[in-house]
Design a protein around this nucleic acid. Structure first.
Lengths: 230, 230
DNA sequence: ATCGTCGGATTGTTGAACAATCGGCCGAAG
DNA sequence: CTTCGGCCGATTGTTCAACAATCCGACGAT
């Protein structure tokens, strides 16, 4: 769990390492650790991250922590207030709408371009993963499956840059999902949508798939905006 | 405190300020200087950037240069090879296609969503800027106008994140444009396209505007792929 | 209660040091 | 003559200690 997450996280900023063994730098590992704590909800939005504290806790130099902060700041997971410190990013209503604007752009574009059979199969796999999680009442599994589903859609385009952008956006969203995930029916309601989208995709009806996905995102945005003060 | 007010200062994501006087950090200024040299073509793709050299040249600490590198690496303008150094990013054929995939996604999405009159006017302004530059035989002005045009299109969506992504993509493209810009007719041929797109946009025919823009991007991609060994 | 001032704490930046790693040079072996 | 292995210099990765600049909150004066 943690290792795969770390690998997925490093897919964000890390310089692609050809076929190199490449031990991640210490700064990268610090960033990974913080990313993990962020995703786990251990560090809540608005929380302050003090350089010296983290440096001491993780047994690294303050300078190294600083580099890790730069990495996280570039991913928008954290914001720097000059001379005041870095804080866990917190998204306001405007940010939520912003994030969904990005998702609409890249997800709809990706699905309307179709994709190889293998990539379509990955989308289907995410749908099945979701159904299995639902059957097992695995709340967290449902959320993960949903993210896999949308990442698989973007992956249809086969663009490394789009994949990166999507990963960042999803990481941002995880920041305030910890508040919304309490609703057990939250993701479950999206399952039929995902399946229908996947069906249209497999049938080659890309226009319809795009329409469905767009409607899905609009609804999801409204829902998120409702949960978080509009 | 939301991240909404984070900053639109420098074109790319410098952590600048609301109404703050805020002198940018030294690291930011170093990054800005390097960005400038990158855009000017003083630093060619593949060139190596040695920490100590730059630190000495700019009269700052090596550690500060390091932070600047992190910033540029996050923007993909530079790549880090662990234990070997940082190099000016160079885009291969695959990257070119990748970049255009991103542009198709966000530009077409933005234009199909329309935009306020003020934002449409900004698009028109960019078209006129291009015509003026063409009349003056201002080669560089033409290139700038073209970028303004596409940035204005993305700005239609009013999304800070999309604007940032677009700025990064354009910065990446400038990296290897220094090779392609030699062709005087390069941008000039696109002028009529831009105007037609703008006309459709002003007429409210968003579908048509989107189609035109998409065709434009496809053609541009093919052209770039042709110039750089496919 | 408001305002200015002071002090403590944290960040921004520097400089120096050291280990780890890389690339290339040179010499030895085949 | 080519190839392989190991050494050397150079550069990066990381740490540490220091200092100035800046901010926050508390204290005190008006």
């Amino acid at each position: 769990m943690t290792t795969s997450d770390a690998a997925a996280g490093s897919a964000l900023g890390a310089a692609a390492a050809r076929l190199r063994v490449a031990v991640p730098s210490v700064a990268d590992r610090v960033a990974a650790e913080l990313r993990l704590q962020l995703a786990e909800g251990l560090l809540l939005p608005g929380a302050r991250l003090t350089e010296s504290t983290i440096a001491e806790d993780l047994g690294v130099s303050r300078n190294t922590v600083r580099e890790a902060f730069a990495e996280l700041a570039a991913e928008r997971l954290v914001v720097r207030h000059p001379n005041r410190g870095v804080f866990v990013a917190s998204l306001g209503p405007g940010d939520i709408r912003d994030v969904y604007t990005v998702r609409r752009a890249i997800e709809v574009s990706a699905i309307r371009g179709g994709g190889s059979a293998k990539r379509v199969a990955a989308v289907r796999a995410a749908v099945e993963e979701g159904k299995a999680a639902a059957a097992a009442n695995d709340e967290e599994g449902l959320g993960n499956a949903n993210q896999h589903f949308h990442r698989a859609i973007v992956a249809l385009a086969g663009s490394r840059r789009l994949d990166t952008i999507m990963a960042q956006v999803l990481a941002e969203m995880r920041l305030f999902f910890h508040k919304a995930t309490v609703d057990a029916h939250f993701y479950r309601g999206y399952l039929p949508d995902n399946e229908e989208i996947c069906n249209a995709l497999e049938a080659g009806d890309l226009d319809r798939a795009g329409e469905l996905l767009l409607a899905y995102l609009d609804r999801s945005e409204e829902r998120q905006a409702a949960v978080h003060g509009d």
